[in-house]
């Protein structure tokens, strides 16, 4: 009887862990995609200013690429999920 009652709770813990993992992973994927873009853009901008490639860049009138910055620090954090199911005050 006791075992039966404990089981659903254990399962729920696993589900929450799974949800947490998925949230973290999704957030990381967004962050790493942004990082790759920024790395590549930085590389591109640097090449425009460096000697041999800067000549070509001058001829082609290239513009430096904009970096993708985050102003709001909260956007970067893993979103907090409230699963306590307490009624909102």
């Amino acid at each position: 009887m006791v075992v039966v009652e404990q089981y659903p709770q254990l399962k729920a813990t696993g589900n929450i862990g799974q949800l947490q993992e998925e949230l973290t992973s999704t957030e990381n994927k967004v962050a790493f995609a942004r990082q790759l873009y920024n790395d590549t853009a930085t590389q591109y901008n640097t090449k425009q200013q460096q000697f041999p490639t800067s000549l070509v860049a001058g001829l082609a009138k290239t513009q430096p690429a904009d970096l993708w910055a985050i102003e709001d620090q909260a956007e970067r954090a893993v979103p907090q999920v409230d699963l306590s199911m307490k009624p909102k005050a």
């Binding site: 942004r34 920024n38 790395d39 590389q43 970096l67 985050i70 102003e71």
Partner: peptide, 8 residues
């Protein structure tokens, strides 16, 4: 901001 590419 944005965690710009330090090593890059």
């Amino acid at each position: 901001p944005g965690g710009l590419a330090a090593p890059g």
